[in-house]
């Protein structure tokens, strides 16, 4: 009799455990941001356009350079007096989190190529004491950078119009998957938002296992 009661208890509790474990293992994947449906009902896949810029080591890099890498991207300039230093500090936190992972790179696009020359970017990177191969500071034609920021990374859409930084150095940090699709973003001036972002990086990496 006692055995039957025990068995019944186990059988009754089993579905709860199944649901519980299913809930744990079937976590919602990160959303894909930017894809849209056109007038014919077809999905238009949104990706970051092809580019060729120069990094702080004076090397030419393109989107091919970051193929099969998870990318963490922001827009900044070295003489920014307001929010960029805060965002760079949070990017450094992310760098510390991912530096041993091997499949994550950080990319900071300067929106002031006129003043942010390659030596200036190199010095800025040196001061951060980072591995230059893991965190690239990129310089390219201003119009092209603005176009990419606005049209591809949706920086304007992500930002409140009256944010003090202005859209082009809004403080947003963006997460791209290994296919250069936008999978998340955070407010780079808010440490809590960045902590959630780092969890999103972990989750994205796990999805490739």
């Amino acid at each position: 009799m006692l055995y039957k009661v025990k068995m019944m208890r186990i059988l009754i509790s089993l579905p709860f455990f199944i649901i519980l474990f299913a809930g744990c293992s079937n976590e919602q994947p990160l959303p894909i941001i930017g894809d849209r449906i056109d007038l014919s009902g077809n999905t238009v896949v949104h990706k970051i356009r092809a580019f060729t810029f120069t990094n702080q080591l004076n090397e030419q890099v393109s989107n091919i350079t970051y193929q099969d890498k998870i990318q963490v991207v922001d827009f900044f300039f070295t003489s920014c007096p307001s929010i960029c230093p805060l965002v760079t500090a949070q990017m450094k936190r992310i760098y510390n989190h991912v530096e041993d992972m091997g499949d994550v790179v950080l990319i900071s696009h300067t929106i002031d190529p006129k003043r942010d020359s390659i030596p200036v970017l190199k010095k800025y990177a040196d001061n951060l004491k980072i591995d230059h191969n893991l965190w690239h500071f990129l310089r390219g034609p201003k119009d092209e950078i603005m176009e990419i920021a606005n049209e591809d990374y949706f920086i304007a859409a992500l930002e409140a119009p009256d944010a003090p930084g202005g859209f082009d150095h809004s403080g947003k940090i963006i997460l791209l998957d290994k296919n250069a699709k936008i999978r998340g973003f955070c407010d780079g001036t808010d440490p809590d938002s960045v902590s959630d972002f780092m969890k999103a990086i972990d989750k994205l990496r796990k999805s490739y296992e």
């Binding site: 003090p164 930084g165 202005g166």
Partner: peptide, 13 residues
């Protein structure tokens, strides 16, 4: 003053 007009950089673009 800087923060008042800096967001307008997006308008310029």
């Amino acid at each position: 003053i800087h923060d008042e007009v800096m967001p307008k950089m997006s308008d310029i673009y």
